[in-house]
Amino acid sequence: MRIDQILPAFTGGDAISNYAVELRKFFQNWGYHSEIFVPAANYNAGIDQVCRPLSEHSRLSSSEDIIIYHFSIGDITADYFRKADGIKIIIYHNITPAHYFAIVKPEMAIALKQGRQKLLELASVTDLALGVSEYNRKELEAAGFRRTGVIPLTINWSGMDGEPDRDLINKYRGKGEIILFVGRVVPNKKIEDLLKAFYHFKLIKPKASLVLLGNYRDTPDYYEFLQRIIQELDLKDVIFTGHTTHDELLAYYKLASVYLCLSEHEGFCLPLMEAMQFGIPVMAYAAAAVPDTMAGSGVLVKEKNYPAIAEMAALICDNPEFRQKIIKGQYRRLDEFRSFPLEEKLKEMLSPWINQG
């Protein structure tokens, strides 16, 4: 028997790709043949030690095998999964609602809308649908999937090891508070709201900086919109890092005073957990899967009251006792997350189809 996984693409260091590698270890430890497959368009020599072309899957698999599809956007992988033989399982990483991209990147909006439609089409042919958060599971249920569950992401904590970029550390240390956000500069992340909150924070902490760590080149119209807001507010010390090295990422995490996320749509939001790992107090807007990920830790922002958000961030910076209380609660959340029996839970969910003897 085989337990294979298919992904739209595989990228080293990417959360979904790392997750698939970790699950493959489980399946192989259970004694099953297990490989990861990606479409030929996204297959290259750099991943040939980890993946195989999707075109090879059909000749290797049978109707008794399990095929797990990591669904994050509709593409040809969804069509293959729908038509394939075997026991079909989806792990749903969520799809950003199309309306966020309708103006700044219409072609992306179309792809996202098509992805939502493909998800609906897969409901009738899928044996088990798993979300990486309870929020995602509820979306699967609403889409018509009969059997659903939650199986959280794994986090490669070793990826947080290493030596931070010393030049960056020396450049910013002692020069004012740093508000950090990590993620792509795209509309659902609501970077404009971060700018507005930072405007009010800057009134309290004039030396502060806002670091927006993530790629902005894929959404140039949105980036220009953000630049206009910066000019209108006469904001200084807003840093768009673009692509960063691993050492630079570590440095920004080490430097951050507060991690602030005002995103309106997240299927899990891994950077929240990374920030907790670095002992950074986390403030995050209570939207989509964020409350599931935070699980009572950090500071959950219920309303986008920018002056109030700024005042809370300043309090965290100025009150060591309050700051430590938040960090302590976040470490408890991390311990809870790490102790989740992922392999045991996954085996239980697959038990109707696998031989556990």
Rank of each mutant, 00 (worst) to 15 (best):
I151Q: 05
E177Q: 13
D193K: 13
D218W: 10
D193T: 06
G176N: 02
K196P: 02
V182P: 03
E141K: 12
E141Y: 05
I204F: 12
G144W: 06
R184D: 11
T219M: 13
V211P: 00
G144Y: 06
T154M: 07
Y222S: 02
D218M: 09
D218C: 05
N136C: 05
K205G: 00
L210N: 00
D221T: 07
A143S: 14
K171I: 03
A208K: 12
M160W: 14
S209W: 04
R217D: 13
F145T: 00
V211W: 00
R146W: 10
N156E: 10
P164H: 06
D167L: 07
S209I: 08
F198G: 08
E192H: 12
N156A: 12
V211D: 00
K189M: 01
R166T: 08
P164F: 09
K202M: 15
Y199Q: 12
R166M: 09
K202T: 15
G214W: 02
N215Y: 04
Y199I: 03
I178A: 04
Y199V: 06
L140A: 01
T148F: 02
K189R: 13
K138M: 09
K196D: 14
Y216C: 03
F201W: 04
L194P: 01
A197M: 14
V182E: 05
P164G: 03
K196H: 14
G144E: 12
N170Q: 12
L194Q: 01
A208F: 10
K175Q: 15
G159E: 13
